[in-house]
């Protein structure tokens, strides 16, 4: 099986991360923000896997499984918060929930 060169894998991870970050910054809908977060997490996971395969170590994949678990937990909490926000503000716009200003 031909291995993917490392710089291509890292480039892909970087692009994914930048896409996620952009989505996070420009989207106002909470659900989309959560999805952007997932993309960023997976970008980081991809970077781990690529690095693991470059040095022939299993660590990268182990960390990726950790990230998956963490992401699942985070999504469950995040979605619960989304529900609460929707109930309270009757909208999914995060800028509406900006009451904690200094």
């Amino acid at each position: 099986m031909a291995s993917v060169p490392m710089h291509q894998g890292l480039l892909l991870a970087g692009i994914l991360f930048a896409l996620g970050l952009t989505g996070l910054l420009v989207r106002r809908n909470v659900v989309f923000i959560l999805m952007s977060l997932e993309i960023m997490l997976n970008a980081a996971g991809l970077a781990f896997v690529v690095a693991g395969s470059r040095w022939g170590q299993p660590d990268g994949q182990i960390v990726f499984i950790f990230i998956l678990t963490m992401a699942a937990a985070e999504v469950s909490v995040g979605l619960a918060l989304v529900l609460q926000i929707y109930r309270r503000f009757k909208t999914l716009d995060v800028d509406a929930a900006s009451e904690m200003r200094g």
């Binding site: 996070l24 923000i33 904690m100 200003r101 200094g102």
Partner: peptide
Amino acid sequence: VRKTETGRIRWYAA
């Protein structure tokens, strides 16, 4: 510093 505490989460992320 208080001025930067807008309560807008996307500004914080940025």
